[in-house]
Every structure is written in C-alpha cells, then in structure tokens.
C-alpha cells in the first residue's frame, strides 16, 4: 500500500533507449493552460499551447514560457521569447510582439519581431513592421509595413546539439538541422 506510487511507475528498459520521434518532445511536458473550451481546432503544430479563446479580451502585458494561441482580443505587448505565437482566425491583436515564431491567421496591428520566422496566412491582415529571419506570406494576405531581415549565419537548434544515437529514430534531428540551415536568411515558398 505504501509503495503503490513506486509500483505504478513504468518499468524502464535497462538495455536500450528509444528517443522521442519529434524534436518538440525534448521540451518538458507541460500541463495545458487552456482558457478556451475548444482549443483543439488549430493545426497539429499548436498542440500543447496555451489558448486565449475567442470570447476573451486581454489588455496589458503577456509573457509566456510556452507556445500561445490567441483567438480572442489582446491589446498590449506580448513576449514569448523562445516560443511560438499563433493568432487564430478570430484573433484581433493590437500589440508589439516578440517571439521565436509567429503565425498570423487573423488580425494583427503592431510591430513584430520573430527570431526564427513569421508566417502570414491567407485572409490574415497585418499592419506593422516586421523584423525576422524568415518570412512566409500566403497569396491573399494583407500586409502593410516594413520588412527587415535578420541575417542568421548558422542557426543552431538546441535539440540538435546532442550527438545522435545510432538508432534509426534519432535521424530526425540532423534532418531538421539541415533544413534550417538551408532556409536561414532566405525566403522560399
């Protein structure tokens, strides 16, 4: 009885270790900090992110240490230095933003800095200045503002730093590093 917790722990293999298949799994698993009753309507890449639902309005400063989806209204500043921000199709954001990656599907008014990339989807509307390493803009998107490209000589991803193990599953990390290096500072559709 007293040792139930220990007994329920999974038995760890002692002879081999299979690494997680995708790089995001290298991050610690976090509880979902959802403020929306239906946060799962976005694409797979947004899974595990905190969500500000479409009936939520926030005025002020947002600082997040995990990915964030905004489908409501935000007026202020947003900082997700090492994480991804998605502005959903219902999102109306009036803010200065700093994040690793920004995906705009709704309305954004403000200057943005994305250290990795920014993606402006079809039907999105962005008015403001962009500073980023890479930009992807879909046909039909509306953008008005300056674009300044940050030159990245050799992007180094944290998850690519450990030496890959000989198992086949570990091959995902070097492949991603190759793609990142090829696309760094350039714009490819």
């Amino acid at each position: 009885m007293w040792n139930r917790r220990k007994e329920e722990e999974p038995v760890r293999p002692t002879t081999s270790y299979t690494p997680p298949p995708a790089p995001p799994a290298a991050e610690p698993v976090r509880e979902r900090a959802s403020m929306s009753p239906n946060p799962s309507r976005f694409d797979d890449a947004s899974r595990g992110a905190a969500t500000i639902g479409k009936n939520v309005t926030i005025t002020g400063q947002i600082q997040s240490r995990e990915d964030l989806i905004i489908d409501g209204e935000v007026d202020g500043t947003i900082e997700l230095n090492e994480h991804r921000l998605t502005i959903g199709p219902n999102g109306k954001v009036k803010a200065g933003i700093r994040a690793r990656e920004i995906v705009v599907k709704g309305n954004l008014n403000g200057n943005v800095e994305a250290t990795d990339r920014i993606e402006i989807c079809q039907e999105a509307r962005l008015i403001g200045d962009i500073r980023t390493a890479r930009i992807i803009i879909a046909d039909g998107a509306y953008f008005k503002g300056n674009i300044d490209i940050i030159k990245v000589d050799a992007p180094v991803r944290k998850e690519a730093a450990p030496q890959p193990k000989p198992q086949p599953a570990a091959a995902a990390a070097p492949v991603q590093q190759t793609i990142g290096a090829a696309a760094g500072g350039e714009f490819k559709r």
Partner: peptide, 26 residues
C-alpha cells in the same frame, strides 16, 4: 503591389529593406 513572397524574397534577398503596401486595397 499586394505583398507577395516573390517580391519580398527577391528584394530582401539582395540585402535591401522593403516597405510594402497594397495600395489598391488601401
């Protein structure tokens, strides 16, 4: 012109900065 990947890529690829505005839409 309407902001597009081709123009952004070409102009910034030459090391220049770009201000873009979809004037027709404006």
């Amino acid at each position: 012109s309407q902001a597009c990947q081709a123009n952004i890529g070409f102009i910034t690829g030459q090391g220049n900065h770009l201000y873009t505005e979809d004037f027709y839409e404006s």
